[in-house]
């Protein structure tokens, strides 16, 4: 490709720095407005501020990226995920918030797809949207409470929470912006040299998984196309014991959940 694209590897070349303070504070102000409180929320102002902040942040962050299909898809999925997250945090009705979480999961699944992880996309949707959220909805229905109530219509220190969240985000993005160009190993990978995988004599599975490692057109290493097969080989090869332990953990958690949820007085605990 052209020499121009390598410009971004120079330090500080990502176009965000302290500028992100603006959209972040606008967005957090919007979230603050939207958080439920007894005297009522201003949905219109808050929503406007939040969307404005998000848009500003996207514009700043994606400033140097050309408009391509991938960029559009990234904007779409990340926008869906972030909007879902904002809804999850601010909706007073917990059932709706749980549905907003499925939106987040779908958005993140889309990002997984962009990141060459189709298996994880499916797993994420099945486990979260399919299992966890549904279970949560059951419990919500079980513990149905009418709005307004203390749990859903009040927030604990919304201003402090938004301030903490905003400063954390600001600092993370600053760190990212300053360091992104200097990610040394990333740069090495981009330049196609010094791949640990080719250097270290590890299990053959790993080598098989990464012998396919190749750079795509923009110089980024590409993952093998058979994502599921290689992921399985990786899991059951290098991480076999961890897989077994995860199975044990699941069993223990199941038993524990049964023991904890048992109504006291109705028989012995397990």
């Amino acid at each position: 490709m052209t020499a121009g694209m390598f410009a971004i590897t120079e330090a500080g070349a990502y176009p965000w720095s302290w500028w992100v303070l603006g959209p972040i504070s606008v967005g957090m102000l919007g979230i603050y407005q939207l958080l439920p409180r007894p005297e009522g929320t201003s949905v219109r102002t808050g929503g406007f501020l939040a969307v404005f902040g998000l848009a500003g942040l996207m514009a700043l962050v994606l400033g140097g990226v050309l408009l391509s299909v991938e960029t559009v898809l990234f904007c779409l999925f990340s926008g869906v995920a972030v909007c879902g997250a904002a809804l999850l945090v601010t909706l007073a009705n917990p059932a709706r918030a749980a549905l907003a979480f499925t939106v987040v999961v779908l958005g993140v699944a889309g990002l997984f797809l962009l990141l060459a992880a189709p298996f994880l996309m499916g797993a994420n949707i099945i486990v979260y949207a399919g299992a966890i959220v549904v279970t949560f909805l059951f419990v919500l229905m079980l513990a149905q409470q009418h709005l307004p109530n203390d749990a859903d219509s009040r927030s604990r220190e919304p201003f402090l929470a938004c301030l903490a969240g905003g400063s954390a985000l600001l600092l993370i993005l600053l760190a990212l912006g300053e360091d992104a160009g200097k990610l040394e190993s990333y740069q090495e990978v981009r330049e196609g040299r010094a791949l640990e995988a080719t250097r270290s004599p590890v299990a053959p599975v790993r080598r098989a998984a990464e012998s396919d490692l190749r750079l795509d057109m923009s110089g980024v290493p590409a993952l093998p196309a058979d994502n599921t097969a290689f992921l399985g080989a990786n899991l059951y090869g290098r991480h076999l014991i961890a897989v077994e332990l995860a199975g044990v953990l699941l069993v223990v958690a199941t038993l524990g959940a049964i023991a904890v949820a048992q109504r006291s007085g109705t028989g012995e605990a397990l």
């Binding site: 994606l62 990226v65 945090v89 990141l115 993370i172 993005l173 992104a180 923009s218």
Partner: peptide, 21 residues
């Protein structure tokens, strides 16, 4: 560049994380 890079994904992840916080 013509596609989102690692820092863009990390930024998106940071936003999700912070909203959760």
């Amino acid at each position: 560049m013509n596609s989102p890079d690692l820092p863009h994904y990390l930024a998106c992840a940071a936003v999700l994380f912070v909203l959760g916080l």
